[in-house]
């Protein structure tokens, strides 16, 4: 109960979409600049200034995008579930929109992690795909994202969609460790001697720099695009509220619109 009140205090400030938009428009240019800056630096180190690995040769360069993408896949799901929880427990309209805005970004990063992993796997292991525990659990994560997006768009009333999908995000979040654990075990049962190990030997600084830079670039990109998408979602909420007013007739006062906005935004 205290936790609830505490959370309410913290989150209350940005529950108002207008105030949130003000904050977002200050952050957005910085996020954009950070994305481009980190991306250029990361690409320089990843493609030009770092040596090939003595074991993996030049293909190690795929790691600099593959591993950050995989990190982002996990991070986005956690962020989405956290935002969904805040939206459900504290009825925080912007948090629900944040969860909605995060899902497509997370799905894209998950796809990229799978795609680049597959391209890395072909020269390294000689196959595009193995039912390795980690690959399988990331594939399932991808489907969880797809399910979330499908559910959030499956209702005529978007408010219903975002509530239902918030519940799904939480259920999926509980299930992610279970999936991870079960898939790990499933894999060890079927192939006891696993030759495949994603993380190579102790990582060298020349490889760590591009890795970290790319991770920062991806994270900044996430913040940038997420804020854009939240803005779009807020606009959609306002449009729906205005349309509703028009249908019901009568000149809308400013306060009723704001009320409707927060309501529609949920």
């Amino acid at each position: 109960m205290y936790l609830y009140k505490f959370g309410k205090m913290i989150f209350h400030k940005y529950a108002n979409p207008t105030r949130f938009l003000k904050l977002a428009s200050t952050i957005q240019p910085w996020a954009a600049a950070a994305t481009i800056g980190f991306l250029l630096a990361g690409l320089y180190f990843a493609l030009l200034s770092s040596p090939g690995d003595y074991q993996q040769g030049e293909t190690v360069r795929i790691m600099y995008i593959h591993v950050p993408a995989a990190w982002m896949a996990m991070f986005c799901y956690t962020a989405m579930a956290a935002a969904a929880a805040v939206g459900l427990i504290w009825k925080h309209p912007v948090a629900e929109l944040a969860a909605r805005a995060t899902a497509p970004i997370g799905a894209c990063f998950t796809f990229l992690a799978l795609f680049t992993g597959s391209l890395w796997g072909k020269p390294m292991w000689g196959t595009w795909w193995v039912w390795d525990a980690r690959l399988t659990s990331v594939l399932i994560l991808f489907f969880l994202y797809l399910g979330y997006m499908a559910l959030s768009n499956a209702f005529d009333d978007p408010a219903r969609g975002s509530k239902a999908s918030s519940i799904l995000a939480l259920v999926g979040f509980v299930n992610v460790p279970i999936i991870k654990f079960s898939v790990d075990w499933w894999n060890t049962l079927h192939q006891p001697a696993s030759v495949i190990k994603m993380d190579g030997p102790a990582i060298h600084a020349s490889m760590l720099i591009p890795l970290i830079l790319m991770a920062f670039a991806f994270k900044a990109f996430y913040i940038w695009v997420m804020l854009m998408r939240i803005r779009g979602e807020i606009n959609e909420g306002k449009i729906r509220a205005l349309r509703l007013r028009q249908v019901h007739g009568g000149p809308p006062s400013r306060t009723t619109i704001l009320e409707k906005t927060t309501e529609g935004a949920r």
Partner: peptide, 10 residues
């Protein structure tokens, strides 16, 4: 081809 396709796809 593997490396450039990866980066291109990203």
């Amino acid at each position: 081809s593997f490396i450039w396709t990866s980066y291109g796809m990203v």
